[in-house]
Amino acid sequence: MTVIVTPRLILRRARPSDLDDLHAVMSHPEAMRYWSTPPHGDIAQTRDFLAAMIAGTPDDSDDFMVELPAAGGRVIGKAGCWRVPEIGYILHPDFWGRGLAREALEAILPHVFARFPVDALTADVDPRNAASLRLLARLGFRETGRAERTWLVGDAWCDSVYLALPRPAAG
């Protein structure tokens, strides 16, 4: 089981005991504002989501829980590739603006490139999510296209900005 330790985080595989912490993220309207589904209405929905993460095959996924030791080991979100090559992440809003998403992704991106023979990692971001677009740009992602009405979230259509991060040159 892969565990990545950064100066402030532990990035590890999901486990059933993460349910309450993950539900605190997935049920939070602000955290889920730009997610591909509405906030989770009950813990059973998060349980199903977590079970799918745990069951994800290592051949096509590399997803991590974001654990913050300074918060008593609380899981504050998740980051990684639910399906390679698409990267994604979500953190509880209480932990936004501290550079934690960047710290997690700076550790995860080289790990994913080392594990999978992909030419690039991709991201699909709601164009209203300026903070994520800035973060991904700082990490080297570049826009490759846009599309309208790509996600039906609840009863609202959302658009997409597509981004890619090429595999770093060897050497």
Results as ranks from 00 to 15, higher is better:
T46M: 11
I54N: 04
L105E: 00
I76H: 05
I108S: 03
V66Q: 02
A52S: 13
R74M: 03
L100W: 05
F64Q: 01
G72W: 08
M26F: 10
R102W: 11
D59W: 13
A44C: 02
R74A: 07
D94A: 14
Q45G: 12
E86A: 12
Y34A: 15
D48G: 10
I76D: 03
W35F: 15
I54G: 03
G73A: 07
G41Y: 05
A101R: 05
L109M: 07
Y89W: 13
V84F: 04
I87N: 00
L105P: 05
T57C: 09
P110V: 05
F113T: 04
A44R: 08
P39T: 02
I43L: 03
A44P: 00
V118Y: 03
F49N: 12
G72N: 04
M32Y: 05
R33G: 07
I87Y: 01
M26S: 10
W96P: 01
H111M: 02
F49P: 04
S27C: 10
L105M: 10
S61T: 06
W82F: 12
D48I: 09
A51Q: 13
P29M: 07
G56A: 15
A71W: 02
T37I: 14
K78S: 14
F95Q: 00
M26K: 15
F116V: 09
A52K: 05
Y34E: 06
G56Y: 14
G73D: 07
M26V: 08
E106V: 11
I90M: 10
